[in-house]
Nucleic acid binder design. Structure first.
Lengths: 235, 235
DNA sequence: TTTATTAGTTGATCTGCATCATTTCTTTTC
DNA sequence: GAAAAGAAATGATGCAGATCAACTAATAAA
Protein backbone atom coordinates (compact mmCIF):
# COMPACT_ATOMS: atom_id res chain seq x y z
CA UNK A 1 0.00 0.00 0.00
CA UNK A 2 0.97 3.62 -0.58
CA UNK A 3 3.12 5.19 2.12
CA UNK A 4 1.00 7.60 4.15
CA UNK A 5 2.09 11.13 4.87
CA UNK A 6 1.42 11.66 8.52
CA UNK A 7 2.17 15.15 9.84
CA UNK A 8 4.93 15.43 12.39
CA UNK A 9 2.79 17.13 14.97
CA UNK A 10 -0.74 16.27 16.08
CA UNK A 11 -1.72 19.90 15.73
CA UNK A 12 -1.23 19.60 12.00
CA UNK A 13 -3.39 16.46 11.85
CA UNK A 14 -6.75 16.85 10.13
CA UNK A 15 -8.30 14.80 12.95
CA UNK A 16 -6.88 17.04 15.65
CA UNK A 17 -10.16 18.67 16.65
CA UNK A 18 -12.11 15.45 16.74
CA UNK A 19 -9.46 13.66 18.76
CA UNK A 20 -8.71 13.42 22.46
CA UNK A 21 -5.59 15.48 21.94
CA UNK A 22 -7.67 18.40 20.78
CA UNK A 23 -7.78 19.45 24.41
CA UNK A 24 -4.02 19.64 24.79
CA UNK A 25 -1.72 22.62 24.95
CA UNK A 26 1.01 23.29 22.49
CA UNK A 27 3.77 22.52 24.98
CA UNK A 28 2.59 19.03 25.80
CA UNK A 29 1.92 18.24 22.20
CA UNK A 30 5.54 18.78 21.33
CA UNK A 31 6.32 15.99 23.75
CA UNK A 32 3.95 13.76 21.84
CA UNK A 33 5.37 14.91 18.54
CA UNK A 34 8.81 13.81 19.66
CA UNK A 35 7.79 10.33 20.72
CA UNK A 36 5.00 9.30 18.42
CA UNK A 37 5.26 6.63 15.81
CA UNK A 38 2.98 5.60 13.04
CA UNK A 39 2.24 2.43 11.20
CA UNK A 40 0.20 1.37 8.18
CA UNK A 41 -2.03 -1.69 8.33
CA UNK A 42 -3.86 -3.28 5.49
CA UNK A 43 -7.47 -4.47 5.69
CA UNK A 44 -7.79 -7.41 8.03
CA UNK A 45 -4.48 -6.89 9.80
CA UNK A 46 -4.34 -6.98 13.56
CA UNK A 47 -3.26 -3.73 15.25
CA UNK A 48 -3.00 -5.19 18.71
CA UNK A 49 -4.01 -8.54 20.09
CA UNK A 50 -6.15 -9.51 23.02
CA UNK A 51 -3.75 -10.57 25.76
CA UNK A 52 -0.77 -8.54 24.52
CA UNK A 53 0.75 -5.79 26.63
CA UNK A 54 -0.62 -2.29 26.08
CA UNK A 55 2.36 -0.51 24.55
CA UNK A 56 0.80 2.90 24.17
CA UNK A 57 -2.13 4.97 23.07
CA UNK A 58 -3.17 4.31 19.49
CA UNK A 59 -4.84 7.04 17.48
CA UNK A 60 -6.44 6.32 14.13
CA UNK A 61 -5.05 8.62 11.47
CA UNK A 62 -6.80 7.04 8.53
CA UNK A 63 -9.23 4.15 8.09
CA UNK A 64 -11.71 2.25 10.23
CA UNK A 65 -10.97 -0.19 13.00
CA UNK A 66 -12.97 -2.76 14.97
CA UNK A 67 -12.33 -3.36 18.66
CA UNK A 68 -13.44 -6.85 19.60
CA UNK A 69 -13.33 -9.53 22.24
CA UNK A 70 -12.99 -13.24 21.63
CA UNK A 71 -14.77 -15.75 23.81
CA UNK A 72 -12.99 -18.96 24.71
CA UNK A 73 -14.97 -20.98 22.19
CA UNK A 74 -13.82 -18.63 19.45
CA UNK A 75 -16.87 -16.43 19.03
CA UNK A 76 -16.12 -12.79 18.37
CA UNK A 77 -18.04 -9.83 19.73
CA UNK A 78 -17.26 -6.41 18.29
CA UNK A 79 -17.28 -3.99 21.21
CA UNK A 80 -17.02 -0.77 19.24
CA UNK A 81 -15.87 0.76 15.99
CA UNK A 82 -13.20 3.42 15.67
CA UNK A 83 -12.63 5.91 12.90
CA UNK A 84 -10.26 8.78 12.14
CA UNK A 85 -9.32 10.60 15.33
CA UNK A 86 -10.51 7.89 17.69
CA UNK A 87 -8.11 6.49 20.26
CA UNK A 88 -7.65 2.84 21.13
CA UNK A 89 -6.34 0.89 24.07
CA UNK A 90 -6.71 3.70 26.62
CA UNK A 91 -8.65 1.49 28.97
CA UNK A 92 -6.07 -1.27 29.17
CA UNK A 93 -3.40 1.40 29.43
CA UNK A 94 -5.18 3.05 32.38
CA UNK A 95 -5.58 -0.24 34.16
CA UNK A 96 -1.87 -0.91 33.63
CA UNK A 97 -2.86 -4.18 32.10
CA UNK A 98 -2.72 -6.47 29.25
CA UNK A 99 -5.16 -5.63 26.42
CA UNK A 100 -8.56 -7.17 27.04
CA UNK A 101 -9.66 -6.47 23.49
CA UNK A 102 -8.15 -6.80 20.05
CA UNK A 103 -8.07 -4.15 17.33
CA UNK A 104 -8.25 -5.07 13.66
CA UNK A 105 -8.22 -2.91 10.53
CA UNK A 106 -11.59 -2.93 8.76
CA UNK A 107 -10.05 -1.00 5.88
CA UNK A 108 -6.48 -0.18 5.01
CA UNK A 109 -5.41 2.25 7.66
CA UNK A 110 -2.71 4.26 9.34
CA UNK A 111 -2.51 4.41 13.10
CA UNK A 112 -0.28 6.59 15.27
CA UNK A 113 1.15 5.34 18.53
CA UNK A 114 1.97 7.45 21.55
CA UNK A 115 4.25 5.34 23.73
CA UNK A 116 3.07 4.41 27.18
CA UNK A 117 5.33 6.77 29.19
CA UNK A 118 4.30 9.76 27.08
CA UNK A 119 0.65 8.92 27.64
CA UNK A 120 1.15 8.99 31.38
CA UNK A 121 3.10 12.24 31.22
CA UNK A 122 0.20 13.79 29.36
CA UNK A 123 -2.23 12.42 31.89
CA UNK A 124 -0.29 13.90 34.78
CA UNK A 125 0.60 17.24 33.31
CA UNK A 126 -2.56 18.11 31.51
CA UNK A 127 -5.83 18.19 33.39
CA UNK A 128 -7.63 19.00 30.15
CA UNK A 129 -6.42 15.74 28.74
CA UNK A 130 -7.44 13.68 31.76
CA UNK A 131 -10.79 15.42 31.71
CA UNK A 132 -11.33 14.56 28.07
CA UNK A 133 -10.37 10.99 28.79
CA UNK A 134 -12.81 10.91 31.68
CA UNK A 135 -15.62 12.10 29.46
CA UNK A 136 -14.68 9.72 26.68
CA UNK A 137 -14.73 6.84 29.10
CA UNK A 138 -18.05 7.98 30.54
CA UNK A 139 -19.53 8.04 27.05
CA UNK A 140 -18.15 4.59 26.20
CA UNK A 141 -19.44 3.20 29.47
CA UNK A 142 -22.90 4.55 28.76
CA UNK A 143 -22.86 3.01 25.31
CA UNK A 144 -21.68 -0.31 26.67
CA UNK A 145 -24.45 -0.35 29.28
CA UNK A 146 -27.01 0.46 26.63
CA UNK A 147 -25.77 -2.33 24.41
CA UNK A 148 -25.83 -4.73 27.33
CA UNK A 149 -29.51 -4.03 27.80
CA UNK A 150 -30.22 -4.45 24.11
CA UNK A 151 -28.20 -7.62 23.76
CA UNK A 152 -30.06 -9.13 26.67
CA UNK A 153 -33.58 -8.29 25.57
CA UNK A 154 -33.87 -7.03 22.02
CA UNK A 155 -34.51 -9.43 19.14
CA UNK A 156 -31.72 -9.87 16.60
CA UNK A 157 -33.56 -7.97 13.89
CA UNK A 158 -33.48 -4.75 15.92
CA UNK A 159 -29.91 -5.23 17.01
CA UNK A 160 -28.91 -5.73 13.39
CA UNK A 161 -30.49 -2.41 12.51
CA UNK A 162 -28.47 -0.82 15.32
CA UNK A 163 -25.31 -2.45 14.07
CA UNK A 164 -25.90 -1.04 10.60
CA UNK A 165 -26.37 2.41 12.06
CA UNK A 166 -23.11 2.13 13.98
CA UNK A 167 -21.35 1.13 10.78
CA UNK A 168 -23.05 3.97 8.96
CA UNK A 169 -21.70 6.49 11.44
CA UNK A 170 -18.22 5.02 11.39
CA UNK A 171 -17.98 5.00 7.61
CA UNK A 172 -19.81 8.23 6.86
CA UNK A 173 -17.45 10.62 5.10
CA UNK A 174 -17.19 14.27 6.15
CA UNK A 175 -18.71 15.44 2.89
CA UNK A 176 -22.19 14.11 2.41
CA UNK A 177 -21.44 12.04 -0.62
CA UNK A 178 -23.10 8.65 -0.98
CA UNK A 179 -20.98 5.76 0.27
CA UNK A 180 -21.09 2.04 0.80
CA UNK A 181 -19.72 0.07 3.73
CA UNK A 182 -17.29 -2.78 3.13
CA UNK A 183 -18.13 -5.25 5.87
CA UNK A 184 -18.41 -9.02 5.84
CA UNK A 185 -21.50 -10.83 7.08
CA UNK A 186 -19.26 -12.31 9.71
CA UNK A 187 -18.27 -8.90 11.09
CA UNK A 188 -21.84 -7.74 10.88
CA UNK A 189 -22.83 -10.77 12.93
CA UNK A 190 -20.04 -10.15 15.45
CA UNK A 191 -21.27 -6.60 15.91
CA UNK A 192 -24.84 -7.74 16.36
CA UNK A 193 -24.10 -10.74 18.53
CA UNK A 194 -25.51 -13.40 16.23
CA UNK A 195 -24.34 -15.86 13.56
CA UNK A 196 -23.38 -14.99 10.00
CA UNK A 197 -26.29 -17.05 8.64
CA UNK A 198 -28.85 -15.12 10.66
CA UNK A 199 -27.18 -11.82 9.76
CA UNK A 200 -27.28 -12.79 6.09
CA UNK A 201 -30.94 -13.76 6.19
CA UNK A 202 -32.07 -10.62 7.99
CA UNK A 203 -29.94 -8.41 5.78
CA UNK A 204 -31.70 -9.93 2.77
CA UNK A 205 -35.01 -9.00 4.37
CA UNK A 206 -33.73 -5.45 4.87
CA UNK A 207 -32.72 -5.39 1.21
CA UNK A 208 -36.14 -6.62 0.11
CA UNK A 209 -37.74 -3.95 2.28
CA UNK A 210 -35.60 -1.27 0.64
CA UNK A 211 -33.66 -0.34 3.77
CA UNK A 212 -30.27 -1.22 2.35
CA UNK A 213 -28.65 -2.24 -0.91
CA UNK A 214 -25.98 -4.90 -1.16
CA UNK A 215 -23.30 -5.68 -3.72
CA UNK A 216 -21.31 -8.64 -2.48
CA UNK A 217 -19.96 -7.63 0.86
CA UNK A 218 -20.57 -3.93 0.38
CA UNK A 219 -23.63 -2.54 2.08
CA UNK A 220 -25.28 0.77 1.30
CA UNK A 221 -27.69 2.23 3.81
CA UNK A 222 -30.65 3.59 1.89
CA UNK A 223 -32.80 4.87 4.71
CA UNK A 224 -31.17 5.88 7.94
CA UNK A 225 -34.49 7.08 9.43
CA UNK A 226 -36.24 3.79 8.79
CA UNK A 227 -33.35 1.82 10.26
CA UNK A 228 -33.47 4.10 13.27
CA UNK A 229 -37.13 3.46 13.65
CA UNK A 230 -36.61 -0.26 13.37
CA UNK A 231 -33.78 -0.21 15.89
CA UNK A 232 -35.79 1.60 18.51
CA UNK A 233 -39.09 -0.21 18.25
CA UNK A 234 -38.63 -1.37 21.79
CA UNK A 235 -36.51 1.48 23.05
CA UNK B 1 -36.11 1.72 60.43
CA UNK B 2 -33.56 2.78 63.03
CA UNK B 3 -31.96 6.19 62.48
CA UNK B 4 -28.43 5.69 61.17
CA UNK B 5 -25.48 7.41 62.73
CA UNK B 6 -23.46 8.69 59.84
CA UNK B 7 -20.18 10.41 60.77
CA UNK B 8 -19.93 14.09 59.93
CA UNK B 9 -16.77 13.72 57.89
CA UNK B 10 -15.94 11.11 55.29
CA UNK B 11 -12.58 10.54 56.94
CA UNK B 12 -14.39 9.11 59.94
CA UNK B 13 -16.44 6.78 57.75
CA UNK B 14 -15.62 3.09 58.04
CA UNK B 15 -15.84 2.86 54.25
CA UNK B 16 -13.36 5.68 53.71
CA UNK B 17 -10.49 3.54 52.50
CA UNK B 18 -12.57 1.48 50.15
CA UNK B 19 -14.26 4.52 48.67
CA UNK B 20 -13.34 6.93 45.90
CA UNK B 21 -12.79 9.66 48.45
CA UNK B 22 -10.01 7.65 50.02
CA UNK B 23 -7.71 9.45 47.60
CA UNK B 24 -8.69 12.92 48.79
CA UNK B 25 -6.78 15.35 50.96
CA UNK B 26 -8.04 16.61 54.27
CA UNK B 27 -8.73 20.11 52.97
CA UNK B 28 -11.07 19.06 50.17
CA UNK B 29 -12.87 16.63 52.36
CA UNK B 30 -13.95 19.39 54.69
CA UNK B 31 -15.73 20.90 51.71
CA UNK B 32 -17.56 17.64 51.25
CA UNK B 33 -18.27 17.40 54.94
CA UNK B 34 -19.97 20.76 54.82
CA UNK B 35 -22.25 19.96 51.92
CA UNK B 36 -23.04 16.29 52.19
CA UNK B 37 -26.41 14.92 53.07
CA UNK B 38 -27.56 11.45 53.91
CA UNK B 39 -30.74 9.53 53.56
CA UNK B 40 -32.10 6.16 54.69
CA UNK B 41 -33.93 3.92 52.26
CA UNK B 42 -35.77 0.75 53.06
CA UNK B 43 -35.50 -2.40 50.99
CA UNK B 44 -37.07 -1.93 47.59
CA UNK B 45 -37.08 1.86 47.67
CA UNK B 46 -35.79 3.79 44.69
CA UNK B 47 -32.73 5.96 45.34
CA UNK B 48 -32.79 7.67 41.98
CA UNK B 49 -34.84 7.03 38.90
CA UNK B 50 -33.87 6.49 35.31
CA UNK B 51 -34.59 9.75 33.53
CA UNK B 52 -34.27 11.99 36.59
CA UNK B 53 -31.63 14.69 36.81
CA UNK B 54 -28.35 13.68 38.42
CA UNK B 55 -28.38 15.75 41.61
CA UNK B 56 -25.04 14.65 42.98
CA UNK B 57 -22.66 11.84 43.76
CA UNK B 58 -24.21 9.12 45.89
CA UNK B 59 -22.05 7.04 48.19
CA UNK B 60 -23.36 3.95 49.90
CA UNK B 61 -22.83 4.15 53.65
CA UNK B 62 -24.69 1.00 54.55
CA UNK B 63 -26.55 -1.67 52.60
CA UNK B 64 -26.58 -3.03 49.06
CA UNK B 65 -27.89 -1.34 45.96
CA UNK B 66 -28.71 -2.45 42.41
CA UNK B 67 -28.08 -0.19 39.42
CA UNK B 68 -30.37 -1.13 36.59
CA UNK B 69 -31.76 -0.10 33.24
CA UNK B 70 -35.29 -0.54 32.07
CA UNK B 71 -36.06 -1.35 28.45
CA UNK B 72 -39.11 0.23 26.88
CA UNK B 73 -41.13 -2.97 27.15
CA UNK B 74 -40.51 -3.00 30.87
CA UNK B 75 -37.73 -5.56 31.13
CA UNK B 76 -35.07 -4.78 33.69
CA UNK B 77 -31.36 -5.41 33.33
CA UNK B 78 -29.19 -5.01 36.42
CA UNK B 79 -25.99 -3.31 35.26
CA UNK B 80 -24.05 -3.63 38.48
CA UNK B 81 -24.31 -4.02 42.22
CA UNK B 82 -23.03 -1.53 44.76
CA UNK B 83 -22.09 -2.07 48.38
CA UNK B 84 -20.69 0.00 51.24
CA UNK B 85 -18.24 2.59 49.96
CA UNK B 86 -19.33 2.36 46.34
CA UNK B 87 -20.38 5.49 44.50
CA UNK B 88 -23.38 5.85 42.22
CA UNK B 89 -24.42 8.16 39.43
CA UNK B 90 -20.92 9.44 38.64
CA UNK B 91 -21.31 8.60 34.98
CA UNK B 92 -24.48 10.59 34.45
CA UNK B 93 -22.98 13.38 36.52
CA UNK B 94 -19.89 13.48 34.31
CA UNK B 95 -21.93 13.57 31.16
CA UNK B 96 -23.96 16.43 32.62
CA UNK B 97 -27.01 14.41 31.86
CA UNK B 98 -30.08 12.85 33.08
CA UNK B 99 -29.58 9.50 34.84
CA UNK B 100 -29.53 6.66 32.35
CA UNK B 101 -29.86 4.07 35.10
CA UNK B 102 -31.94 3.67 38.23
CA UNK B 103 -30.68 2.75 41.69
CA UNK B 104 -32.80 0.70 44.08
CA UNK B 105 -32.09 -0.51 47.61
CA UNK B 106 -31.64 -4.29 47.75
CA UNK B 107 -31.56 -4.12 51.54
CA UNK B 108 -32.37 -1.33 53.97
CA UNK B 109 -29.64 1.17 53.44
CA UNK B 110 -28.18 4.57 54.10
CA UNK B 111 -26.71 6.59 51.26
CA UNK B 112 -24.78 9.85 51.41
CA UNK B 113 -25.14 12.52 48.76
CA UNK B 114 -22.46 14.97 47.69
CA UNK B 115 -24.23 17.72 45.79
CA UNK B 116 -23.38 18.27 42.16
CA UNK B 117 -21.36 21.49 42.57
CA UNK B 118 -19.21 19.95 45.31
CA UNK B 119 -18.51 16.98 43.09
CA UNK B 120 -17.24 19.24 40.35
CA UNK B 121 -15.14 21.27 42.77
CA UNK B 122 -13.51 18.06 43.90
CA UNK B 123 -12.93 17.00 40.33
CA UNK B 124 -11.23 20.27 39.48
CA UNK B 125 -9.19 20.76 42.60
CA UNK B 126 -8.04 17.26 43.26
CA UNK B 127 -6.18 15.37 40.60
CA UNK B 128 -6.06 12.34 42.89
CA UNK B 129 -9.81 12.28 42.86
CA UNK B 130 -10.12 12.60 39.11
CA UNK B 131 -7.52 9.89 38.76
CA UNK B 132 -9.44 7.54 41.01
CA UNK B 133 -12.57 8.27 39.07
CA UNK B 134 -10.74 7.54 35.84
CA UNK B 135 -9.59 4.20 37.13
CA UNK B 136 -13.01 3.35 38.53
CA UNK B 137 -14.58 4.11 35.19
CA UNK B 138 -11.94 2.06 33.37
CA UNK B 139 -12.70 -0.90 35.61
CA UNK B 140 -16.44 -0.56 35.14
CA UNK B 141 -16.00 -0.26 31.39
CA UNK B 142 -13.93 -3.43 31.34
CA UNK B 143 -16.57 -5.27 33.31
CA UNK B 144 -19.34 -4.01 31.06
CA UNK B 145 -17.48 -5.16 27.96
CA UNK B 146 -16.90 -8.55 29.50
CA UNK B 147 -20.56 -8.91 30.36
CA UNK B 148 -21.53 -7.84 26.87
CA UNK B 149 -19.52 -10.72 25.46
CA UNK B 150 -21.02 -13.18 27.91
CA UNK B 151 -24.57 -11.98 27.41
CA UNK B 152 -24.17 -12.37 23.68
CA UNK B 153 -22.68 -15.86 23.63
CA UNK B 154 -22.84 -17.67 26.95
CA UNK B 155 -25.79 -19.90 27.83
CA UNK B 156 -28.04 -18.79 30.67
CA UNK B 157 -26.79 -21.45 33.03
CA UNK B 158 -23.28 -20.02 33.03
CA UNK B 159 -24.47 -16.45 33.26
CA UNK B 160 -26.58 -17.40 36.26
CA UNK B 161 -23.50 -18.79 37.97
CA UNK B 162 -21.74 -15.49 37.27
CA UNK B 163 -24.67 -13.55 38.66
CA UNK B 164 -24.55 -15.56 41.86
CA UNK B 165 -20.84 -14.84 42.20
CA UNK B 166 -21.46 -11.11 41.75
CA UNK B 167 -24.10 -11.25 44.47
CA UNK B 168 -21.76 -13.26 46.64
CA UNK B 169 -19.11 -10.56 46.41
CA UNK B 170 -21.55 -7.75 47.04
CA UNK B 171 -23.07 -9.39 50.11
CA UNK B 172 -19.95 -10.93 51.58
CA UNK B 173 -19.31 -9.43 55.02
CA UNK B 174 -15.84 -8.25 56.06
CA UNK B 175 -15.54 -10.98 58.64
CA UNK B 176 -15.71 -14.41 57.06
CA UNK B 177 -18.91 -15.49 58.75
CA UNK B 178 -21.41 -17.53 56.76
CA UNK B 179 -24.15 -15.46 55.19
CA UNK B 180 -27.13 -15.75 52.92
CA UNK B 181 -28.21 -13.40 50.15
CA UNK B 182 -31.71 -11.94 50.14
CA UNK B 183 -32.54 -11.65 46.46
CA UNK B 184 -35.72 -12.39 44.56
CA UNK B 185 -35.78 -14.70 41.54
CA UNK B 186 -36.83 -11.66 39.59
CA UNK B 187 -33.70 -9.69 40.53
CA UNK B 188 -31.57 -12.75 39.91
CA UNK B 189 -33.11 -12.98 36.45
CA UNK B 190 -32.56 -9.26 35.81
CA UNK B 191 -28.90 -9.66 36.71
CA UNK B 192 -28.55 -12.69 34.46
CA UNK B 193 -30.60 -11.35 31.58
CA UNK B 194 -33.29 -14.01 31.60
CA UNK B 195 -36.80 -14.59 32.97
CA UNK B 196 -37.69 -15.37 36.57
CA UNK B 197 -39.02 -18.80 35.56
CA UNK B 198 -35.75 -19.83 33.92
CA UNK B 199 -33.78 -18.41 36.86
CA UNK B 200 -35.96 -20.40 39.25
CA UNK B 201 -35.55 -23.63 37.31
CA UNK B 202 -31.79 -23.36 36.99
CA UNK B 203 -31.39 -22.32 40.61
CA UNK B 204 -33.26 -25.48 41.60
CA UNK B 205 -30.76 -27.45 39.54
CA UNK B 206 -27.91 -25.67 41.34
CA UNK B 207 -29.56 -26.55 44.66
CA UNK B 208 -29.89 -30.21 43.66
CA UNK B 209 -26.25 -30.21 42.62
CA UNK B 210 -25.24 -28.82 46.00
CA UNK B 211 -23.92 -25.50 44.70
CA UNK B 212 -26.33 -23.36 46.67
CA UNK B 213 -28.96 -23.67 49.37
CA UNK B 214 -32.25 -21.81 49.30
CA UNK B 215 -34.77 -20.82 51.94
CA UNK B 216 -37.53 -18.88 50.29
CA UNK B 217 -35.86 -15.97 48.60
CA UNK B 218 -32.64 -16.25 50.56
CA UNK B 219 -29.78 -17.90 48.74
CA UNK B 220 -26.65 -19.31 50.35
CA UNK B 221 -23.66 -20.00 48.15
CA UNK B 222 -22.20 -23.32 49.23
CA UNK B 223 -19.33 -23.67 46.80
CA UNK B 224 -17.80 -20.56 45.32
CA UNK B 225 -15.10 -22.58 43.51
CA UNK B 226 -17.60 -24.81 41.75
CA UNK B 227 -19.73 -21.83 40.73
CA UNK B 228 -16.60 -20.21 39.42
CA UNK B 229 -15.78 -23.28 37.42
CA UNK B 230 -19.30 -23.41 36.03
CA UNK B 231 -19.25 -19.71 35.14
CA UNK B 232 -16.04 -19.98 33.18
CA UNK B 233 -16.63 -23.20 31.29
CA UNK B 234 -16.48 -21.22 28.09
CA UNK B 235 -14.25 -18.41 29.28
C1' DT C 1 -9.89 -15.95 -19.27
C1' DT C 2 -10.02 -20.05 -16.48
C1' DT C 3 -9.56 -22.01 -12.19
C1' DA C 4 -9.44 -21.98 -7.32
C1' DT C 5 -10.87 -20.07 -3.11
C1' DT C 6 -13.48 -17.57 -0.27
C1' DA C 7 -17.86 -15.41 1.02
C1' DG C 8 -22.80 -15.19 0.74
C1' DT C 9 -27.40 -17.34 0.28
C1' DT C 10 -30.88 -20.34 1.33
C1' DG C 11 -33.09 -24.56 3.09
C1' DA C 12 -33.99 -28.05 6.76
C1' DT C 13 -33.78 -29.23 11.32
C1' DC C 14 -33.13 -28.89 16.21
C1' DT C 15 -33.03 -26.79 20.75
C1' DG C 16 -32.65 -23.43 24.53
C1' DC C 17 -35.28 -20.47 26.48
C1' DA C 18 -39.51 -17.51 26.62
C1' DT C 19 -44.20 -17.58 27.47
C1' DC C 20 -48.41 -18.98 29.54
C1' DA C 21 -50.77 -21.53 33.08
C1' DT C 22 -51.37 -23.79 37.54
C1' DT C 23 -50.07 -25.19 41.91
C1' DT C 24 -47.45 -24.77 46.17
C1' DC C 25 -44.98 -22.43 49.37
C1' DT C 26 -43.81 -17.90 51.99
C1' DT C 27 -44.76 -13.70 53.86
C1' DT C 28 -47.82 -10.14 55.32
C1' DT C 29 -51.72 -8.37 57.29
C1' DC C 30 -55.61 -8.28 59.91
C1' DG D 1 -53.61 -17.90 63.92
C1' DA D 2 -56.47 -17.39 59.83
C1' DA D 3 -56.91 -15.13 55.58
C1' DA D 4 -54.95 -12.69 51.84
C1' DA D 5 -51.29 -11.50 48.97
C1' DG D 6 -47.08 -12.30 46.94
C1' DA D 7 -43.22 -15.17 45.45
C1' DA D 8 -41.43 -19.56 43.95
C1' DA D 9 -41.82 -24.00 41.62
C1' DT D 10 -43.11 -26.67 37.95
C1' DG D 11 -45.52 -28.28 33.80
C1' DA D 12 -46.87 -27.64 28.85
C1' DT D 13 -46.16 -25.40 24.63
C1' DG D 14 -44.22 -22.48 21.02
C1' DC D 15 -40.84 -20.06 18.59
C1' DA D 16 -36.55 -17.31 17.56
C1' DG D 17 -32.50 -18.19 16.28
C1' DA D 18 -28.45 -21.63 16.22
C1' DT D 19 -26.56 -25.31 13.72
C1' DC D 20 -25.67 -28.21 9.81
C1' DA D 21 -25.61 -28.68 4.94
C1' DA D 22 -25.78 -27.77 0.06
C1' DC D 23 -25.50 -24.55 -3.36
C1' DT D 24 -24.30 -20.10 -5.74
C1' DA D 25 -21.99 -15.85 -6.42
C1' DA D 26 -17.95 -13.02 -5.95
C1' DT D 27 -13.19 -12.33 -5.65
C1' DA D 28 -8.38 -13.69 -6.12
C1' DA D 29 -4.85 -16.35 -8.17
C1' DA D 30 -2.88 -18.74 -12.01
Amino acid sequence: MVAPSVPLTCEACPNFERSLLGACQHAELSLVAGGKLHQAYSKGQVIFQQGSRAVGLYCVYQGKVKISKLSADGKEQIIRLAREGDVLCYRSLMMGQVCTTAATALTDCVVCLIPRPDFFSLLEQNSQFSNSLLRLMARNLGEAEERLLHTAYKPVRERLAEALLLLYQAFQPDTDTPFSIPVSREDLAALTGTTKETASRLLSEFRDEGLVATQGSRITVLSQPRLNQLASMYN
